[in-house]
Amino acid sequence: MTAQRAGLALIGVFVFVGMFAPWLWPYDPYERVADPFSPPSAAHPLGANDIGQDILSELIAGARVTLAVGVAAGAAAVLVGSVVGLLAAAGPVPLARLAYAATEITLIIPKLPVAIVVAAYLGGGVGALVLVIAAIAWPVTARVVHAQALSLRSREYVLAARSLGAGGWWIARQHLWPGVRGLVWVQFLLAVNTAALTEAGLSFLGLGDPTQKSWGVMLHYAHARSAFLTDAWVWWALPPGLCLTLFLLGLTLAGRSFTGRTMNHAK
């Protein structure tokens, strides 16, 4: 579908920018190259931040951080979620129940303190952030995988395999995983979405890693250094928010089917 392609194209742009950021940014985003709070000029199209770093360069660097955090956390969340989901659906009974309960519990637990606890133990930094987000995001995947695997489990060929004495592990690998695999890609995009949004939210509250140049951190500083009291929000707070929106848009478009036709087709 065209929407899907548009989404992939959008993601592609950000992946490109993120991968080649050091060649694309006009200045080192960590270097102070202009007067603090400079408005946009020919040399600095988006002006400078509160200590004189080039905002455009920060924005480009932000694609890198957001992507890295998003992909790493998304992958970790989906990995954990899939394993737990499969366990809950096809594991030995006590383990399955525990896996199910763990999913439900994690869904209910408030995210903010969990984030602080995990970050405190891991000492801040991007690695900690990835784990924090993964710890928050995995149950969503687990739930979906669990539901799908359950419906697969009651299919005839699986029942047949079971009656022939196949073990749980064998069934999970031979029959359930292939059926779930298609879902996982969509779940991954969804998890990246959650991860990017969570990173931005945590960073905005000042609970991320403020020394990183992510879009969320840019918004944090724009807010903390009064961009919203002046015109500066136009070139300082608008662009990172827009980039984040476009990136999430790309993920949504790539990961979802919108029209009835594709939905019917998927059936």
Binding site: R32, D50, I51, G206, P210, T211, H220
Partner: peptide, 16 residues
């Protein structure tokens, strides 16, 4: 301390 954006910036500049 993250409670104060200015102090974080001050830390960055000191390191620089």
């Amino acid at each position: 301390s993250e409670s104060d954006a200015l102090r974080i910036r001050a830390g960055e500049l000191v390191a620089e």
